[in-house]
C-alpha cells in the first residue's frame, strides 16, 4: 500500500513538473525577467523619494496568465518584439505607458506568410463595422483579441462549444463588463438578457452559437466575418439558420466544412452509412450540429416523399375501385 502511495505521488509529481515544464518551454527564456514581476501579485521597486526598496501591489491589469500565454498564437515572441525595448530598464519609465501599441496589421499586413489568414481583408471588413464607425482607430484589434493569449480556435479546435465559448467571451469581455465597456462608450452597459428576450431558448442559443452569427454580415471569402453590424441590422430572421441551407454552414461550421471537404474530397453526408455519422474523418466532431429546420439527412426527405405519395396513391386507387364497384 505504501509502495503504491509513493508511486502514485511520484507519478503525480512528474506529471505536474511536466506540465510546468511544458508551459515553460513555450515561453521564450528572455521573457522570464519580465514575467518574474508580471506574473506576481506584488513587485519590489526602489523608491527614489524614500531611498528604500518597497514592495508594491501589481496593477491587476498587468499581471499575465502564463498558462494562457504559453498556448497563445504569439507564445514564441519576446515581450520586446511588441513592447518598447526601454522596458528592459527597471524601474520602467512612466512615459512608456503611453507608447502606441502595435496592431495586428503592423506585423501581419501585406505579408505573404500570413496570406491564408487574410489580415488585410479582415482590416477591410473591420473598417465597415460599427466598432470602427463609432470609435475609429481607437478601436484596435486588441479590444477583442488579446495579443498575449489569443488562440485561433475557429481554425484549430474541433470542439464547437469551445469555439463558441471562446468567441462569445471576446464580445462579453466588453459588452458584459462595465470596466472595459466604458473605454468605448459613455452609455450604461447593455442588458444583454433583456435585449435578447425575443430569442426563444435564449440560454441555449448563447451556448451553442456565436454572437457574430447574427451580428455580422457573413462573408464567403473570410473565415470569420469582422463586419460587426449595428444592432438594428442584426438578423432576427430565424430561418437564416433554421433551414436546410443554414447560414451557419458558412459561418460557425465553415472551417470544419472546408477541412472535411479537403480531407474526404466531398461532403461525407452523401454516404448512406454516413447518414447519422458526423463526418467521415478520423477526427471526431462529436458535436455535429443540428438545428430545427431540416433533418440534415437528405435521404430522409426522399424516403418521406416516397412513403407519402405511395400512401396517397393507395388511397386514391382504393377510392376509385370503391366507386367503380359500388
Amino acid at each position: 500500500m505504501r509502495f503504491f502511495a509513493c508511486t502514485l505521488f511520484l507519478v503525480i509529481l512528474a506529471g505536474f513538473l511536466g506540465v510546468l515544464n511544458l508551459n515553460g518551454q513555450n515561453i521564450p527564456e528572455q521573457n522570464q525577467a519580465c514575467l518574474k514581476c508580471h506574473t506576481s501579485q506584488a513587485h519590489t521597486i526602489y523608491n527614489d523619494w524614500t531611498e528604500k526598496e518597497e514592495k508594491r501591489l501589481m496593477n491587476p491589469f498587468y499581471i499575465l496568465d502564463t498558462i494562457q500565454l504559453a498556448v497563445g498564437v504569439h507564445q514564441v515572441f519576446s515581450c520586446i518584439d511588441c513592447h518598447s525595448m526601454d522596458y528592459e530598464t527597471y524601474p520602467h519609465d512612466g512615459q512608456l505607458k503611453l507608447e502606441p501599441m502595435m496592431t495586428c496589421i503592423d506585423c501581419h499586413g501585406g505579408d505573404p506568410t500570413y496570406e491564408d489568414w487574410q489580415f488585410d481583408r479582415i482590416e477591410e471588413e473591420f473598417q465597415k463595422s460599427v466598432h470602427y464607425e463609432l470609435h475609429g482607430d481607437q478601436f484596435s484589434c486588441s479590444k477583442c483579441h488579446s495579443q498575449h493569449y489569443y488562440r485561433a480556435t475557429a481554425r484549430t479546435s474541433s470542439d464547437l462549444r469551445e469555439i463558441v465559448d471562446y468567441s462569445n467571451k471576446m464580445c462579453l469581455s466588453c459588452h458584459d463588463n462595465m470596466t472595459k465597456y466604458q473605454l468605448v462608450s459613455e452609455d450604461a452597459k447593455p442588458q444583454l438578457v433583456d435585449i435578447h428576450n425575443w430569442l426563444p431558448n435564449q440560454e441555449l442559443h448563447f451556448r451553442r452559437v456565436r454572437c457574430i452569427e447574427c451580428h455580422t454580415e457573413v462573408q464567403d471569402s473570410l473565415m470569420v466575418s469582422h463586419n460587426i453590424l449595428r444592432k438594428e441590422h442584426a438578423t432576427k430572421n430565424c430561418v437564416e439558420c433554421h433551414s436546410a441551407n443554414s447560414m451557419l454552414q458558412a459561418s460557425l461550421y465553415k472551417y470544419q466544412n472546408l477541412r472535411v471537404r479537403t480531407e474526404t474530397g466531398e461532403n461525407s453526408q452523401k454516404s448512406i452509412l454516413g447518414l447519422f455519422t458526423v463526418k467521415n474523418t478520423q477526427e471526431d466532431f462529436s458535436n455535429e450540429y443540428y438545428v430545427i429546420g431540416a433533418s440534415r439527412i437528405p435521404y430522409l426527405n426522399t424516403i418521406f416523399a416516397l412513403i407519402f405519395f405511395a400512401t396517397l396513391g393507395g388511397i386514391v386507387v382504393h377510392t376509385i375501385i370503391r366507386i367503380i364497384k359500388k
Binding site: F276, T277, V278, D284, S286, N287, E288, Y289, Y290, I292, S295, R296, I297, L300, F304, I307, F308, T311, L312, I315
Partner: peptide, 29 residues
Amino acid sequence: EQVFQLSGIMLTAVIHGIIGFLTFVFLLV
C-alpha cells in the same frame, strides 16, 4: 451529448421527425 459518436440532439430530432412523419401517414390512412 453523444450517443455512440452521434450527436444526441440530432438523433433525438431525427427519431422525432421519423415517428412524427409515420404518425402523419397513420392519420391519412
